[in-house]
Design a protein around this nucleic acid. Structure first.
Length: 562
RNA sequence: GCGCCUGUAGCUUAACUGGAUAAAGCGUUGGCCUCCGGAGCCAAAAAGUGCCGGUUCAAAUCCGGCCAGGCGCACCA
């Protein structure tokens, strides 16, 4: 690895100069702007400070020492700014890197930092009997990308989905179904409507509230045949519907957890905690006093006065259940940020009960997808469903391909992949945590920084390779490394950083830069039939490979033509 | 009221966890197809990062105080 090699050069230089070296606070990274070199270190500034030297002078001395070594991978070492030491790598190094990318193939970008470790990622978490809306799409896109990134860092990775198949929302939907059933023949898939009807009636009508509470009890206890029948039908229909969406999105889960199974485990944990004094009784409920530990936390009910686990106890149970099924080293949880405060309290309780589980948990809170009119609400029916969004984007994509001469099925397949890519890109391009105000024309683009832009760059590269119609042979004559080569070698570092920060947007930004520099090169330079054809074909191949690796890491479909 | 999160060109976002001249896309203005795919390319105008202080060789990033928005604060999930 070139990075290690450069580090060694730096250490050698420091030793020769006989200044004390503490590498801990220094860094060696690939700067965003290539005019500052291919790698850059701030070591001179850090060391100069502790040693009481002038940073620029020290930097010059370090650079001089390294130049003396004549490392064939290093073309030049320069000092810039307040004392940065910048490395410029040689043509030989870049030529070898290109060959290495082709050799590595689809594995390019992977590393072994998490080798031997087990990670579980939980995301999406839709509730049966409720709509799968664009908020779930957000969680799914982020969770799937993170799973793939973690996998690429060498961990054995499992995907988990947690679904609320019992609870008040279920009873409301079933009640709505019973009402609708009286009027017409109906479709069990209309649970969105049933839920809206049930929710409204629950809040406005006391009589209905009782009926719905009865249904809730019937569901928990499975005591009523008619309710059971509708419940089983609806639950299965929901799960099948979700499975179809997962397939379209390119996600598949290794574990499905249900609230019906975490409920009892959680309750037991709370009871144990109660006897240890972690929880206390209050008004018939069992509560956790978060504010005792940190003023930013508050009291929450874990078991209600009816003796039923609330969401918080169920989550305790879930952590335990997950670990039983898959003894993980790290558990990543992707949820909306509206549960941020709640999660702090729940995790603190978990920390007191099962410290080793709490220590392994990492929470990624993504922002909310909101409508220009405000927050989405499945209770009032103000939601955009995932399916309707995908279909709408598809329609727009098909308008663009209308003049292309392709069979209808092919167009359909392309439109599907482009639409999914556009949607995922719009979610992944920003750091998770921020809200997205959902507006078609603003947040979803098919041009410029967009999913299709990346897909297009890939198909274009592939098209050139196909047209060249020859075996890629090794080149003898390289070219002065340009931005493309410099970008190509960055992928592994970007993948690692994306894991460290659990931040897929770094890969997005990287791919946009790569695609852009390739498009720019393509516009100005002839590839096929040029003097340097062999080299340029290898370069094109490496770009295609890198785009493919990166897109796959994001869960954005790669297509051969569009 | 208390707590948590967020605030960057007109708009949507980035910025290697404190680094170098704050970077892209959309939109606006002006260019580019006898040439490998125009979902493309080139260029221009456009912000000093909500406001005020502080720490530092270095601040969009850290600290303090304001302002604005969002979310959460007892038996929903």
């Amino acid at each position: 690895m070139i990075r290690k090699e450069l580090k060694r050069e730096i250490e050698k230089a420091l030793m020769a100069l006989e200044v004390g070296f503490s590498g801990s606070d220094t860094n060696l990274e690939q700067p965003a702007d290539f005019k500052f070199g291919d790698y850059s270190t701030n070591v001179a500034m850090v060391v100069a400070k502790t040693a009481g030297l002038n940073p620029k002078d020290l930097a010059e001395k370090i650079a001089e020492q390294i130049r003396l070594n004549n490392n064939p991978n290093i073309k030049d070492v320069q000092v810039a700014g307040g004392g940065f030491v910048n490395f410029y790598l040689s043509e030989k190094f870049f030529a070898e890197s290109l060959r290495a990318i082709l050799k590595t193939g689809d594995n390019y970008g992977r590393n072994q930092t998490l080798s031997g470790r087990k990670v579980v990622v939980e995301y999406t978490d839709p509730n049966p009997f409720k709509e799968f809306h664009i908020g779930h799409l957000m969680s799914n896109s982020i969770g799937e990308a993170l799973s793939r990134i973690i996998e690429a860092n060498g961990a054995e990775t499992k995907r988990a989905c947690y679904q609320g198949d019992v609870g008040l929302h279920v009873a409301k939907t079933i009640w709505g179904y019973f009402q609708a059933e009286k009027k017409e023949n109906l479709d069990i898939h209309d649970w969105g409507k049933f839920y809206v009807a049930g929710s409204k009636a629950y809040e406005t009508d006391e009589e209905t509230k009782k009926e719905i509470n009865d249904i809730n009890r019937q569901v928990y206890g499975r005591t009523n045949d008619k309710t059971n029948q509708v419940y089983d039908l609806g639950r299965q229909a929901s799960l099948e519907y979700f499975a179809e969406i997962y397939k379209r999105l390119g996600t598949s889960f290794d574990f499905y957890f249900f609230e019906s199974e975490t409920e009892k485990i959680g309750k037991k944990m709370v009871e144990v905690g109660l006897s240890k004094g972690i929880f206390e009784k209050s008004d018939g409920a069992i509560v956790f006093r978060g504010e005792k530990f940190d003023e930013s936390m508050h009291t929450r009910v874990f078991v209600n006065s009816l003796g039923l686990s609330t969401y918080e106890a169920k989550d305790l149970g879930l952590a335990k259940l997950k670990f039983e099924r898959y003894p993980y080293d790290l558990s990543v949880l992707v949820t909306g940020n509206e549960v941020l405060d709640y999660f702090r309290v729940m995790l603190k309780a978990l920390d007191l009960l099962e410290p080793e589980l709490a220590a392994k948990a990492r929470h990624v809170a993504h922002g909310m997808l909101r409508l220009p009119t405000g927050k989405m609400s499945s209770r009032t029916g103000e939601v955009i469903t995932a399916v309707s969004l995908i279909e709408e984007v598809k329609k727009r994509v098909l308008e663009k391909t209308s003049e292309r001469e392709l069979p209808v099925e092919k167009k359909e397949e392309i439109a599907e992949k482009v639409a999914i890519g556009a949607i995922k890109f719009s979610i992944l391009k920003q750091s998770p945590g921020r809200d997205i105000v959902f507006d078609f024309d603003r947040s979803l683009s098919l041009e410029g920084d967009s999913g299709p832009y990346l897909q297009y760059a890939y198909t274009r590269a592939k098209s050139v390779l196909a047209k060249a119609d020859k075996e890629i042979v090794d080149f003898t004559q390289g070219e002065e490394p340009m931005v493309i080569e410099k970008l190509l070698i960055k992928l592994p570092a970007v993948v690692e950083r994306s894991f460290q920060e659990l931040a897929p947007q770094h890969i997005v930004t990287y791919l946009v830069n790569l695609a852009s520099s390739f498009n720019s090169y393509y516009a100005k330079n002839k590839i096929i039939g040029s003097e340097n054809e062999a080299y340029r074909l290898v370069l094109t191949r490496a770009v295609a490979q890198t785009l493919k690796s990166g897109l796959t890491l994001l869960g954005i479909p790669v297509l051969e033509e569009m």
